[in-house]
Design a protein around this nucleic acid. Structure first.
Lengths: 244, 244
DNA sequence: GCTCATTTGTTCGTATGTATC
DNA sequence: TGATACATACGAACAAATGAG
């Protein structure tokens, strides 16, 4: 299909940009794979190199593509799209080093849908979820207790995956590799609460201790939410770092 | 001064980009003002339009410039650089509307330097600070109690500014307009603490209530810190919203 | 180690369109 | 209307990185 000049007001490079973006978001061009070289676009759409370059360069800025001289143009995966998609960065002071974080899986269970959670995830109230409980720790000090909810229909047999996978790999990488869900954005609501007995046990603090609570929604392409997560953080030794 | 081709490996557009960025960061080209048109750069540096366009376009992406067809190229101010430099966005639930926030100034006082704070602000231990205490509230509900520290030598006579200015304008705008300090980035350390008597009084909560505590460092150009702020947030009705 | 084809990166120069005043 | 300024698009040439043979 060809572009017609002086027909519609939207620039040619932008139309091409949208077409490519759609192929990525629809999954036709998968995360990590190489897309056709500039030359192919110029021939197929009968436009100049500069126009193709502009479209591709914009998609690099938007985080969809990576280009490497001599190699080609590649679809960005979650970890490449955001160098720092470490949900939790923990520091004692500004300018500290971020410590290594270990993950302990508590359990994964299929659960019934919850009215509020299903609404956040754009699901019907009846649809079922998986509930994943984990503890994040440095050395032997537990720092964060997280409870994630994911739709069962998107993550089939999530509870059949080997348990140690969850303790070795980052959660969003597991989802990307096994279910081709690429993380594009996150929203958080941050609050403070007093620890209940569950939290106190997992985080090894006293009941009623002040904790940071984080409600998180993770989105994939097309602004589709795929995970609702509750996190509880004890911040006596390490605080949560954000930069913007 | 002219660029020589094939002399140094760094691209011409990048050299030009750095030169322009320096003029902005040094204050030679002030926030909001128009910079020379493309034509002037092409003549002065003997490069083509495309090269100038690339340099300028990169600085637009980095948030330093704004370009408007038919008008010109302008240096971005803090509020333009980041459409959402609202330090605190408060929500009950995801997708809520952000409420209007009022500010009540408690006091501004000159104080002696503090070892740790002065280190964060890259000051000698002896240099004095201003301490600004404020309460942020919606309607009549106090939400956040903040204590800011700013170096006296940068913000001369800050305590002489009319008090009601602090209750009408955003803090970073006051600093930008009166002291030409443009906010480029922020770092935060988020933790949870139990309210002490001061916090409890200002936030109208009970002593020992869990609060979110935020340590914030604000930076201007050249990664120079200019404000250290401690915030205490009661999050029973409104939570702190973050998106990334 | 060298050469060659492929692919992206940089730069030039030109022409035309469009928004602003 | 005209002058100015940025936006879009074309096409060409050469540079630089990569990988295969």
């Amino acid at each position: 299909m060809a572009f017609r000049k002086n027909d519609e007001p939207t620039p040619v490079y932008y139309q091409l940009q949208v077409e490519i973006k759609n192929k990525i978001e629809s999954g036709e061009w998968k995360s990590g794979s190489m897309i056709p070289p500039e030359r192919v676009f110029t021939e197929e759409y009968q436009v100049s190199v500069g126009t193709v370059k502009k479209a591709l360069s914009n998609l690099v800025n938007d985080g969809y593509l990576l280009r490497k001289q001599g190699k080609g143009t590649f679809v960005t995966g979650t970890s490449l799209r955001r160098e720092q998609l470490r949900y939790y960065r923990l520091f004692n002071h500004f300018h500290d080093e971020s410590p290594k974080i270990d993950v302990k899986l508590i359990d994964i269970q299929p659960v019934k849908g919850d009215k509020q959670i299903n609404r956040y995830l754009n699901l019907k109230p009846s649809q079922s979820l998986f509930c994943v409980k984990r503890v994040l720790l440095t050395a032997t000090t537990p720092l964060i207790y997280t409870v994630s909810y994911l739709p069962q229909h998107l993550f089939k047999e999530l509870d059949r995956l080997p348990r140690d996978l969850f303790e070795k790999e980052l959660f969003y990488l597991i989802l990307e590799e096994n279910y081709a869900v690429s993380t594009v954005s996150n929203q958080e609501l941050i609050g403070a609460i007093a620890a209940d007995e569950d939290m106190a046990r997992f985080l090894e603090v006293e009941v009623e201790s002040p904790l940071v609570s984080i409600e998180m929604l993770s989105y994939t392409y097309k602004e589709r939410p795929y995970e609702y997560r509750l996190s509880y953080c004890q911040t006596r030794t390490r605080k949560i770092f954000r930069e913007y």
